[in-house]
């Protein structure tokens, strides 16, 4: 535990190192999101781990950093996946920006370790998937039911439910460190 607290203090004291860690985690999550996320797909719906990370960054670092991070992660994901270049970047930028409104300076534990975090992820997911599917699917080719229920609502719900895991992790570790 002491080691963890030490590591956290090192990261807190060194922002550059922190961003490098973020970048490494983002790359790993990109690979996971592209390669193995299909293993936990339910009726073709998968959670977006990168979005959860972007929301987390926005809640830890603030709106501006979250915004830039969201765009960069979105671009990387666009390149790694077969999506149109810029599509994920746009959706991720806007949802990170919205998540940044919930940034509480000096109260990171309150932002991440509570159900507030889930609600922010749910809102950001809703915005992300609405933008993504509006531009990607073009609803004229799909029924309203399919578009709303399956594509947006189901993806939002799954991503929100999945964010319980980081919330619990943050809740546990923030309590220990405090």
């Amino acid at each position: 535990m002491q080691r963890m607290i030490l590591e956290q203090s090192v990261l807190t004291a060194n922002p550059q190192l922190r961003y490098v860690v973020y970048a490494i985690i983002a790359l790993l999550l990109t690979i996971i999101n592209v390669v193995v996320i299909q293993l936990i797909a339910v009726a073709g719906v998968t959670p977006n781990l990168l979005l959860i990370m972007c929301v987390t960054i926005a809640l830890i670092e603030g709106q501006f950093t979250g915004l830039l991070f969201g765009w960069c992660v979105g671009m990387v994901f666009d390149i790694a996946s077969t999506d149109d270049i810029g599509l994920n970047a746009l959706a991720m930028t806007v949802s990170s920006f919205i998540a940044g409104y919930f940034y509480l300076e000096g109260k990171t534990a309150k932002s991440l370790g509570t159900t507030r975090y889930l609600l922010v992820v749910a809102l950001a997911s809703l915005i992300y998937f609405t933008i993504y599917f509006l531009l990607f699917i073009r609803p004229v080719n799909s029924t309203v039911y399919d578009f709303l229920i399956k594509n947006i609502a189901a993806s939002t719900l799954y991503t929100s439910v999945f964010s319980i895991l980081p919330m619990l992790w943050f809740s546990r570790n923030m309590d220990r460190s405090s």
Partner: peptide
């Protein structure tokens, strides 16, 4: 207003990539 200006710029860049982005170069 750096957040808003950045947001607008990034959105414009994203749309530019989507509209004019030459995927072949990538």
């Amino acid at each position: 207003f750096k957040e808003y200006i950045t947001l607008v710029l990034l959105i414009i860049m994203s749309f530019s990539f989507m509209t004019f982005g030459n995927v072949a170069k990538l």
